Each structure stands twice: as structure tokens, then as C-alpha cells.
Amino acid sequence: MDKSLAHTRWMCKYHIIFTPKFRRKIIYNKYKESIKDILKDLCKYKGVEIIEGHLMPDHIHMLVSIPPKMSVASFMGYLKGKSALMIFERHANLKYKFGNRHFWSEGYYVSTVGLNEATIKKYIQDQEKEDQMRDKLSIKEYENPFQG
């Protein structure tokens, strides 16, 4: 579903995978619900929608919709940094296993999830119709520069 900001319509979906330090199998045990709640709260605070999310024993898959005003890199820095602090705050015993502030491994995987061709064509056609209506152009005045 498209979202909008003032004069912009957008749909920026990303598939993200990230792991705990040393791929420790820690997410599924007693910390699973806590980590899930922390990630949901942090995403909500930044206006990021979690479309789908799966917590695996040693990694996390998320399909998220990130507003275009925020880069994926800045969002991931925020998500991993803030969540690590919150996890250690709630579960102080983990500081000894992971070292303070180093719950997540350094990197992450990200891929874009795009629109299909039919959706793009329809969007472009709808935009042309909207522009014609807005500018009150007649059909004679309007010529498609990409045809002919």
C-alpha cells in the first residue's frame, strides 16, 4: 500500500536480516518476547512499519516499510544501537556474555522489495490523468512525449 508525505507518494519496502554477535543462538529462548517488543516499539517510534517479522534462534528477518526521508543505514544504526541498550537494560546478565553495547554483529543484509510493472504503469497513468485534471488540459493540448 502506498503511503504519502505532503506531496510525495511512496512505497519503500526492505527485507532486512541481522544477527546477534557471533551468531549466538539467544533470540529464541527467554529473551524472544522481550526482543520482539523492543524492536516493535523502536520501529513504531521512527514511523517504520513492520510488514512481516521472524525471530529465528540466531538471526532476525524483517520486511519493513521505511519512509523515504530516512536512509536504511541510519535506521539500522538506530535500531541495532538502541535495541542493544534496551536489551542490556532489561537483561543485565547479558552484558557479561556480549560485552556492554555489543549485542548485534556489525553488519546486516538488506534488499529492496519493488513494485511490479503493471502497478508502475497504472501509477504513471493515474498521475497523467491527475495532472490533466489539475491543469485542465484538453486532450488536444496533451501529447505523450514518449509515443510516436
Rank of each mutant, 00 (worst) to 15 (best):
Lys3Ala: 01
Ala6Thr: 01
Thr8Phe: 04
Arg9Phe: 08
Trp10Thr: 01
Cys12His: 01
Lys13Asn: 07
Ile16Thr: 10
Phe18Met: 00
Phe18Asp: 01
Thr19Ile: 14
Phe22Ala: 03
Phe22Asp: 13
Arg24Lys: 15
Arg24Cys: 09
Tyr28Phe: 09
Tyr28Ser: 12
Asn29Lys: 14
Lys32Leu: 05
Lys36Pro: 00
Asp41Pro: 00
Leu42Asp: 02
Leu42Pro: 04
Cys43Ala: 05
Tyr45Gly: 00
Val48Ile: 10
Val48Phe: 03
Ile50Lys: 03
Glu52Ile: 12
Gly53Asp: 12
His54Asp: 13
Leu55Ala: 09
Leu55Pro: 08
Leu55Phe: 15
Leu55Ile: 15
Leu55His: 10
Leu55Val: 11
Met56Trp: 12
Pro57Phe: 14
His61Ile: 11
Val64Gln: 06
Pro67His: 09
Pro67Ser: 07
Pro68Gly: 04
Lys69Leu: 11
Lys69Trp: 09
Met70Thr: 15
Ser71Gln: 09
Ser74Cys: 09
Met76Val: 06
Met76His: 05
Gly77Phe: 05
Tyr78Cys: 06
Tyr78Ser: 06
Ser83Lys: 04
Ala84Trp: 11
Ala84Phe: 12
Arg90Phe: 04
Leu94Thr: 07
Lys95Val: 14
Lys95Thr: 10
Tyr96Cys: 00
Gly99Val: 08
Asn100Cys: 05
Asn100Met: 11
His102Leu: 14
Ser105Arg: 13
Glu106Asp: 07
Tyr108Pro: 04
Val110Met: 13
Val110Ala: 14
Val113Leu: 02
Thr119Ile: 10
Lys122Ile: 05
Tyr123Pro: 01
Gln127Gly: 13
Glu128Ile: 15
Glu130Gln: 15
Asp131Lys: 15
Gln132Lys: 15
Arg134Asp: 07
Lys136Ala: 14
Leu137Ile: 11
Lys140Ile: 13
Lys140Asn: 03
Glu141Thr: 09
Glu141Arg: 13
Tyr142Ala: 08
